[in-house]
Amino acid sequence: MKNIYPFQPKVSYAQRKQQMQQEPSLVWFTGLSGSGKSTLALRLEHYLFIRGYKVYLLDGDNMRSGLNSDLSFTDTDRKENIRRVGEVAKLMLDAGLVVICAFISPFEEKRTLVKSMVGKDRFTEVFVNCSLHVCEARDTKGLYLKARAGLQPNFEVKTDQESIDESVHKLINYIEPLLQAKPQTTVAV
């Protein structure tokens, strides 16, 4: 593109990691509406924050009420929603943060795009597997009722066996070791 000249920062990625004392990582929760993505993501964020990690949660509803408020729920706009979230997450990772994302994100190609944007070694996908029956019973936003009534166009219908605490415990045991700062030799300033 013309007239776009990305600058090279004076602070390196290695320097940011060293200062943060953690491995920047993206934990991407995907699953049906009502599956428990946001609940688990909130709990994980709180746990990691209390443990001293520099962490931030990006949630679908929050992103759609701000940065992505101009997008609808067509397939094209859903894909653009995830692409934008991936770009934001990449910037946050480059700043040295641990980023947690909770998005329905039904398109594997877009989750794969995000993984390639941030680097597969910094990306962990968590599929929150919950039956459609349980998600419909929860239906906290009324989306399934709207979809069945034909009032929610482009709704994708594609945790119900363990407690939230059990799910969070599994996540912590898997995610926390990935965030431990790896020993640094020297970092050039």
Rank of each mutant, 00 (worst) to 15 (best):
residue 88 V to P: 00
residue 31 G to I: 04
residue 110 K to G: 07
residue 128 V to C: 10
residue 96 G to H: 08
residue 64 R to M: 02
residue 128 V to S: 05
residue 61 D to R: 00
residue 109 E to V: 10
residue 114 V to M: 08
residue 20 M to A: 15
residue 17 K to V: 11
residue 122 R to W: 08
residue 134 V to Y: 10
residue 60 G to S: 10
residue 30 T to R: 01
residue 137 A to P: 09
residue 57 L to S: 09
residue 100 I to L: 00
residue 43 R to A: 04
residue 142 G to P: 03
residue 130 C to Q: 06
residue 107 F to R: 14
residue 148 R to I: 02
residue 41 A to Q: 00
residue 144 Y to F: 02
residue 55 V to S: 12
residue 65 S to Q: 14
residue 89 A to D: 02
residue 69 S to M: 14
residue 96 G to W: 03
residue 100 I to D: 07
residue 65 S to N: 14
residue 139 D to T: 07
residue 98 V to W: 10
residue 35 S to P: 02
residue 88 V to Q: 04
residue 149 A to Y: 01
residue 82 I to H: 03
residue 35 S to Q: 13
residue 133 H to L: 04
residue 155 F to W: 00
residue 77 D to S: 11
residue 48 L to C: 08
residue 44 L to R: 06
residue 66 G to Q: 07
residue 16 R to H: 08
residue 121 D to M: 12
residue 94 D to E: 15
residue 86 G to Y: 07
residue 73 F to A: 13
residue 94 D to P: 12
residue 154 N to A: 02
residue 91 L to W: 06
residue 117 M to D: 12
residue 99 V to W: 14
residue 123 F to R: 15
residue 33 S to E: 09
residue 79 K to V: 11
residue 100 I to V: 14
residue 46 H to R: 09
residue 130 C to E: 00
residue 58 L to Y: 15
residue 19 Q to V: 10
residue 97 L to P: 06
residue 63 M to V: 15
residue 23 E to A: 06
residue 142 G to W: 00
residue 141 K to C: 00
residue 24 P to L: 04
residue 63 M to R: 07
residue 46 H to I: 10
residue 43 R to N: 08
residue 154 N to M: 01
residue 126 V to M: 02
residue 140 T to Q: 07
residue 35 S to T: 06
residue 27 V to P: 02
residue 66 G to N: 14
residue 86 G to I: 12
residue 156 E to P: 04
residue 97 L to N: 12
residue 97 L to I: 01
residue 120 K to S: 15
residue 85 V to L: 07
residue 81 N to K: 08
residue 45 E to I: 10
residue 141 K to I: 08
residue 30 T to N: 01
residue 118 V to S: 13
residue 150 G to K: 00
residue 25 S to V: 08
residue 34 G to E: 05
residue 119 G to M: 11
residue 24 P to R: 01
residue 42 L to W: 06
residue 48 L to N: 06
residue 39 T to N: 03
residue 158 K to L: 05
residue 30 T to V: 14
residue 62 N to S: 02
residue 47 Y to N: 03
residue 21 Q to I: 12
residue 153 P to F: 00
